[in-house]
Amino acid sequence: MSAKISVEPFGESFECADGETILDAALRNGFFLKYGCRHGGCGTCKVVMSEGDVEGEGSSFAISAGERADGVVLACSSRPATDCTIDVDSMELTEDEFRAGDQVASFEVELASLERLTHDTCALSLALQPPASIAFTDGQFVNVVVPGTDMVRSYSLANAPEDSDRIDLIVKLLPGGAFSALLESGLHVGDSLTLHGPLGELRLRLSHRKVLMVAGGSGLAPFLSMLRNLERRGRSREIDLVFGARTRADLYLVGELERLVAALPGVTFVPALSEPDDELWTGERGLVTEVIARRYTSLDGYDAYLAGPPAMIEASIPLITGLGVRPANVHFDAFVSSRR
């Protein structure tokens, strides 16, 4: 049974087919709602359900308990159980943008290089095919279509927006992951891929506060893009980047990070190993949460940015808000592995 979805503040409505998500129905009907990963991981498509009821579940990281209590749902993961009214005001869409439909572009790319950074992490550089340019904000991600399927995988761009002719990604190889399997064996330099984007709302916001960046796993990518962008623009900020890894062999691009630190006054790089297997390791030891708790007696006057495994983000948020970061100043991308 289809349901009617009314959208405020635009006073518009559309039909949502049985089993269809609110996001898919909006896009099919020619309306635009902001979205990202499309599987409940990133939180970009948050809307407020002011009337009606939905079925579906979102990642516990994408919606806080407080938001859930306020009626926030994820449009990409919610299927209406009744007619619904949603309020999309928080997406800050203009009416023109809403009515213009989905403008997120598709790109054809060619794998220009594939480099193994660690035993389970790869760096991909993708050359854009004509039209060979993508406009994105440092911190955004793209959805890469897994060849031969309709599945997509979300990865943050690691290059600076000025390098608009290519897309650099950092991919964590997950056991049994569809894209991971392809990278391990089937994908070669020169092969073509399709991707959609750019997507996501993570960006380094203008502020008078200092910045704490916390990266784990492949979560370094958006911060690399931000730092490279600051370098290109000749700007700097007071930033502490805490990069957590298990062992020394799991750290990657350390040389590039040290180069950026040298070029950007005010930026500090703090590598941290949870299981240092090297006695010569003089850096921080412990989980990133332990490192933060040890290094900072107060984070009052900081903005915090988090990217990495959901468990790291889940553990970090109460710690850093407890140390004084205002909840509104905590920004994150949870790299929830796709369930589809």
């Binding site: 800050e92 916001r205 203008l206 502020s207 008078h208 509104a328 100043n329």
Partner: peptide
């Protein structure tokens, strides 16, 4: 002023 005006509008 800090978050909305500087962090969003001016940003």
């Amino acid at each position: 002023v800090g978050d909305d005006f500087i962090g969003s509008y001016i940003d």
